[in-house]
Design a binder for these strands. Sequence first.
DNA 1: TTGGTATATCGGGAAATTCCGATATACCTT
DNA 2: AAGGTATATCGGAATTTCCCGATATACCAA
Lengths: 101, 101
Amino acid sequence: MDQVEIFKALSNKTRLQILGWLKEPAAHFPEQPAGADFETVGVCVGQIQIKSGLSQSTISEYLSILQRADLISSTRIGQWTYYKRNKEGVEKLSEIINTAL
Amino acid sequence: MDQVEIFKALSNKTRLQILGWLKEPAAHFPEQPAGADFETVGVCVGQIQIKSGLSQSTISEYLSILQRADLISSTRIGQWTYYKRNKEGVEKLSEIINTAL
DNA sequence: TTGGTATATCGGGAAATTCCGATATACCTT
DNA sequence: AAGGTATATCGGAATTTCCCGATATACCAA
């Protein structure tokens, strides 16, 4: 993953917020459908979209940008796609800052 | 300083490289004019411009973007402006990653 | 199979970014 | 004062990003 792409992914207010929300899902989202829980699968697209106030298509795209940057990961359960923070990806970013910058 | 602006500043290959170069100036640049040394004032615009391969105006603008994001600081000595890494700003970014994301 | 819900993808207008050359400003030297 | 060097600012063409509505796809339920 190109370092620049990681920073690009975070150079947008909404995408930065989403990653923040996904750090503490229970504090930012109601219960998830399909009995899914935050720890295992994360938060479904619809809840993130509602909270963001932007359109469904925009949020779907933003989530895939964050995923391409390895900052979040996704799981499909039935008709829902759940996204959650990717600990390893965020830690890798932290390392970049601490070693390269 | 807005968090998004910090990430925007780093969401460009050249600007990311510049900050990397300024972390270890002695490894990336020749001696500076006016007897200035890296530790105290940093590297002058011209040297950064040459190394980047981009135009003078572009690099001048990029440096001011990095400075607005508090990632570097500048000192004017005679006809030269020297830029250097701003430790505090980079540390603040590291904290943002570790606490908010 | 038909209809409903959740998400992804497509096409595009508006705004922002990239990067340039030209020009302005600041300072230094003679 | 005049000319030279270093940097900043301006104006703009090309590209990218932002964000939307429309549509496609996937799955589920009756």
